[in-house]
Design a protein around this nucleic acid. Sequence first.
DNA 1: GCAAGGTC
Length: 676
Amino acid sequence: MVAGGCRPPRGYGLIIAEKPKAAAKIAEALGGRYARRCTAYGVPYWVLRVDGRLFVVAPAAGHLYGLYTDERGFPVFTYRWVPLDVAEGAKHARKFLALLATLCRDASIYINACDYDVEGSVIGYMIIRNLGDVRRAYRMKFSALTPTDIRRAFRRLEPLDWPMIEAGLARHELDWLWGINVSRALMEAVKLVTGKKVVLSAGRVQSPTLVEAAKREARRRLHVPYPRFNVQVWLAGREGRLKLTIASREKLIEAKRIADRVAARGYAFVSSVAGRREYVKPPPAFNLSDLQMEAARLYGYSPAFTQEIAEQLYLDGLISYPRTNSQKLPHTLDFRGILEGLASIPAYTQLVKRLLLETRGVLRPVQGPKEDPAHPAIHPTGAVPRRKLNRAEERIYDLIVRRFLAAFSKPAVVERVTATLDFGVVRVNVSGTRVLEEGWYVYYPFSRPKDDIPRVSRGERLRVERVVVETVYTEPPEAYTKAKLVRWMEEVGIGTEATRARIVETLFDRGYLRLSGGYVTVTDLGFAVAEVLEKFFPKLTSVAMTREFERLLEDIRRGIRRRAEVVEEAKRVLSLLLEDYKKRAMRDAGLMLAKSLRLVEAERPCVICGRESVDGRLCRFHLEALEALKRGFVEWRRRLGGIGWEEYLERVASLRETGMWVRDVAKYLLETGLAP
DNA sequence: GCAAGGTC
Ligand SMILES: [Zn+2]
């Protein structure tokens, strides 16, 4: 350890922060200029005096302990807390543990100053339990890492928050029990059937996500496009030409009737042109998933990549903590200081100047609805980059800065112009927008709409130059991107800001998902795991399990239930499920999984794809596709007013919109000439 | 080797 003031004499108070950045803020808030920054084991800590008493502020780095077992096989119900380098091989944890072990030895009291949430309670508690003494421990409770909040929390130290700790411990145990046991159940099943070791996994968050992706993928592959008939017209007016779809009908005959009458009339009359002003409020500052969505939309970045970049910017001191759900910028932040800092970055000098003029120095940001227990929305710190940012860093930083600036700006004024065109048989509204006042678009141009108002005037006669009936086809549901999958997880409330992108990547690492042209597709293994889980462990495939856990944890926090009873109940439920599975279902599950991996031959292969068939001819996917094709034929005949089976198959087989399994079956039927 | 949760 460093000499002098960095080795305080026995009897100091040890304040444990969740991370180095938080430790620095706490030290500064409590010790001001007199906080001495020291380093040991490559980890910073601070020594300071408050009212003459000596304190040391030292950081953890998130969880430094995790659950671990050395038992093999399943069911496995015994586990213990061990240092994270043992539990997960997390080498970086070692130096933090080493420092905390050293500092805990001579401390007289221990103060858990980790983020005030269940995980923070567990992080601090495990350190104090293993390296210090819980009988001399306290909790600091603050909802933001601002000097005021920190000082207030320090003056009002509370005893250890046992209900919160117990809830956090229960969360870890429940996830471990379900996750480890069901993962092993999957792997053992494959091993039983093939003798091979394949890494498979399941869990409260990853499994509902996999099932969601599989459902979407199946709907896409089973999509039978239906025809629609659009009446398109080319018009000529005083201000130029325009092309419009003026009607869309399911039945060809109806669309044709409209087209004929429009052509016969030869003109359209502009019966009205109306403009309506809309005030578009600036969006709030980013939370992590908003940032991930924008980076995906604008630059095609995956959520995990965006997060990695944001974390680096945070570590470099350029932006605030990125793993936040908050869309709020609390007034305790030093807005003016941040803006002054940004003004010294050439790219933002003019924008900041403009913003200060526009707001006349009254800095009141829009606040979004989403909240976070520990961190505000992502914002720049105002620090000037001390190195050249790479392209991705520059883009992400730019998005964050601009979104922050926009939050203080005025609404944009957009005019929506709607023209009503009268074709005799139909009246059509054509609308478009134009920006009248740029407002916040000046700072955040990425959401600015294009000017596209219809160029026609009231009372004008537009000449119909051409009329065509165009056949279009219904589109399959949209494929997920990684960012959309992360957003789905957020919407249904599973995972956290810190874990969602990582868990999506886990599904890829397991071979459940693949990327194709930037879109998520589900592999045969992914479908098989989803099917096995839904059949044998349906609870784990539903987001309802997270809701149930939340209720249980809340009960523990309120003292209505005890951790031990909640954990015992989970073990009981799992024990029944797993014993039953082992006896009756494991071979079936193993076969389903092994066949999807092509480790086992199908007994009666699907004539199209070789997967196991249901009826000796088609697999479950192609059988479903055949059913969809038959239903589609009825609909196509209704819409077209008559079409033969073979022509129908030919058209469906050739359409871009057709789902893969449907196309397979259509082609197969055409080749073999088999009747449906 | 397997979860989900922290953070580096
Ligand atoms: Zn098949």
